[in-house]
Design a protein around this nucleic acid. Structure first.
Lengths: 207, 207
DNA sequence: TGTACATCAGTGAACGCGCGTTCACTGATGTAC
DNA sequence: TGTACATCAGTGAACGCGCGTTCACTGATGTAC
């Protein structure tokens, strides 16, 4: 008795849904997600405004899907690159994975850095939790590779992971704005933060 | 022949103008500055929508005034605290000045961290330039106090200042979200970044 | 001092517009027998 | 195979609403003589 749409039908619906997510991302990159309207998104995706409701109850729900799906995939990819790194390759791996993400999908990264501070409460909370997962991955990598592990204070690795994430996000912001030498600055800052001076950047004498 | 309004008149106009800026800040803190409307701001400030035009041509102009006046004053205050610090007191001075700013005017700080990535191009550019001034102040303090000065690479102090600013802004974001232990994390991160390990946080052995 | 005029912040009515949302409908396709 | 029915993405008309903006006006107050 159950109605079972063919694979083709499901794929078509999925395409429209993806177009909506994509459109919201693109439009949000221009003037902020919270000021993107339902009609605007539908127009950009090439469907009638009323058809929007076949996919999402409202823009809030679309935003949550955006975080759960696209953002989740993106930060997981970065986390995996970090998890696969060795002690020596961790910093460049993190930096390159992050900058690659910016290059591959600028609108998505703009959404992340922008909605992390500006969005509605629910969306912001979800976004934060996705990023917290990445911080936790970082923390465990730091622990595994022994970086920071000798610190007496157990909160240090978490602080290090959080601070590293902060720098990476800041790097995204600058890269999105077309700033130069973002990579060098990130490599320097993360190396410094995580206690791994680079050979080309000799440790400075301490006071 | 020139019309010269009394001081009292000018003060009254200034009060209304300040109320508009304040209202925009308050409303923007809730759902993002770019989605705050002219009528909404006027309503919150207690004037008729049409009276808005006696003060600003549009919301964009109000936003620019917000940055030039309130944001400018805020970051200058932090810069001055940093400039007055000694080598030893720089990090705590920076952290405390920043967290004090958050406590004193949360809506303003939310505006700063949020519009830095989300706003219209013009507003964003102006906001960046205000923050760049702070970064430059930091850089010169680092140079004056000798911190990082022995680094062979001349770009290091600027990278250090930029990275420090990134951490401070991230600290604001967390403090605004009511996170705990922001101060400790910032002290740790900045000390680490600027090459000044704290006595309670012994330097970790380098690889 | 009085009078005529200029300035200017604030106002209410009115406008056209795009918004989110509802509704009843279409048409393609799957299911039951 | 044919027939009757269910499912469901997409649609166009219509709604009420709040928006930004214009306009002509008011009323308080400063200026000139």
């Amino acid at each position: 008795m159950a109605f079972r749409p063919t694979l083709e039908k499901k794929e078509e619906k999925e395409r429209v849904r993806a177009a909506l997510l994509r459109a919201a991302l693109q439009l949000g990159a221009v003037h902020g997600f919270s000021s993107v309207g339902l009609r605007e998104v539908a127009r950009e995706a090439g469907i009638a405004p009323t058809s929007f409701y076949r996919h999402f109850a409202d823009m809030e729900e679309l935003g949550l899907a955006l975080v759960r799906e696209l953002v989740g995939r993106c930060v997981r990819a970065i986390g995996e690159r970090a998890a696969a790194a060795t002690r020596e390759s961790l910093v460049p791996a993190l930096v390159d994975a992050t900058l690659a993400a910016v290059e591959q999908d600028p609108a998505l990264l703009r959404f992340i850095v922008s909605e992390r501070v500006g969005a509605s409460t629910g969306l912001r909370a979800l976004l934060r939790s996705e990023l917290a997962l990445l911080a936790e991955t970082l923390r465990s990598v730091l622990a595994r590779t022994g970086i920071e592990a000798v610190a007496a204070d157990e909160t240090v690795p978490l602080m290090a992971a959080d601070a590293a994430l902060a720098l990476l996000l800041e790097g995204c912001v600058r890269a999105l704005d077309g700033a130069a030498s973002v990579r060098a600055t990130l490599l320097w800052g993360l190396g410094r933060l995580l206690g791994m001076p680079r050979s080309t950047d000799p440790e400075v004498a301490h006071a």
